[in-house]
């Protein structure tokens, strides 16, 4: 199937227009994207996660995440008996290359994908001394890399360990919820690469988004609710041992 880009544009005008705006990389070029019409979040369905590490690899490829740091990562929990307070947790290289095979069948195992919770009342944006990190009108917490001092106060303030100082750029870095994709009608790289649909990008302001039906019928929870951060990453069937 030898198709040049020109042919693609002629053949498939609708898809091509969307793709053009992806390439152009400017939100203005994205057709009809209006920040105030969206409130982004994510749904994570723990029973569906198989710990393949696809999301971690996809995130690193999509966002040039430096080695040893993670915008998203996967943890594997092993809880034996009633011992909720002492789960054995591993996340080798953030789960990027998957996990060692578990032979022992005692207790329960499950995987927990983690990423920035894009908190509505975010402690990280609260402490930034200069306004270099903020939540956008469509609900994405991001860092202004041209304005950040690299003081790391936000890294200390995040209860979830989602931030790091970029080793070469020397500024705070974190998940952008693939803002460059979601503003153009694409899903995030991690959701695109997830083979089981364990991760779903969701727009809380869109009444047609399937998340509303899901939230109505499932027991969902956010991480560390006692922190009252207004976290917007919802976990289905989250175990009490998860930190």
């Amino acid at each position: 199937m030898n198709i040049t880009r020109r042919q693609l544009l002629i053949l498939l005008p609708a898809a091509a227009v969307a793709w053009e705006s992806v390439l152009a990389g400017t939100p203005e070029a994205a057709p009809n994207y209006n920040m105030t019409d969206h409130w982004w979040s994510m749904l994570i369905d723990i029973p569906k996660c198989i710990g393949c590490g696809n999301c971690v690899r996809a995130c690193q490829a999509e966002n040039d995440v430096p080695d040893g740091f993670f915008r998203t990562w996967v943890e594997r929990y092993h809880v034996t008996d009633w011992n909720l307070e002492n789960p054995q947790v591993i996340s080798p290289d953030g789960g990027k290359e998957g996990f060692p095979v578990a032979k022992e069948d005692a207790g329960k195992y499950f995987f927990v994908p983690k990423l920035c919770n894009h908190c509505a009342d975010s402690p990280c944006t609260q402490v930034c001394p200069v306004g270099a990190t903020f939540i956008t009108p469509d609900g994405v917490v991001m860092v202004d890399q041209k304005y950040c001092l690299g003081c790391a106060y936000c890294v200390q303030a995040c209860p979830y360990g989602c931030r790091y100082i970029h080793p070469t750029k020397k500024v705070a870095d974190k998940c952008t919820l693939c803002y460059h994709r979601i503003t153009k009608g694409l899903t995030t790289a991690c959701c695109e690469a997830c083979p089981t649909g364990a991760r779903q990008l969701a727009d809380l302001k869109n009444p047609k988004d399937p998340i509303h039906a899901f939230l109505k019928t499932h027991s969902v929870q956010v991480l560390k609710p006692q922190m009252a951060t207004g976290a917007k990453v919802f976990y289905n069937a989250l175990d009490g041992s998860v930190r």
Binding site: Q126, V127, C128, P129, V130, G131, A132, Y147, C148, L149, G150, C151, A152, Y153, I165, K169, K170, V171
Partner: peptide, 28 residues
């Protein structure tokens, strides 16, 4: 503080656009 910053040359921003909710900005 200055030496530990990733971008010491930007520290003036603390006085230009101090963030009211930040203890660090108010410390300046």
């Amino acid at each position: 503080l200055q030496l530990h910053l990733g971008h010491p040359e930007r520290s003036y921003e603390m006085y230009m656009t101090p963030h009211r909710t930040s203890a660090m900005a108010m410390f300046g």
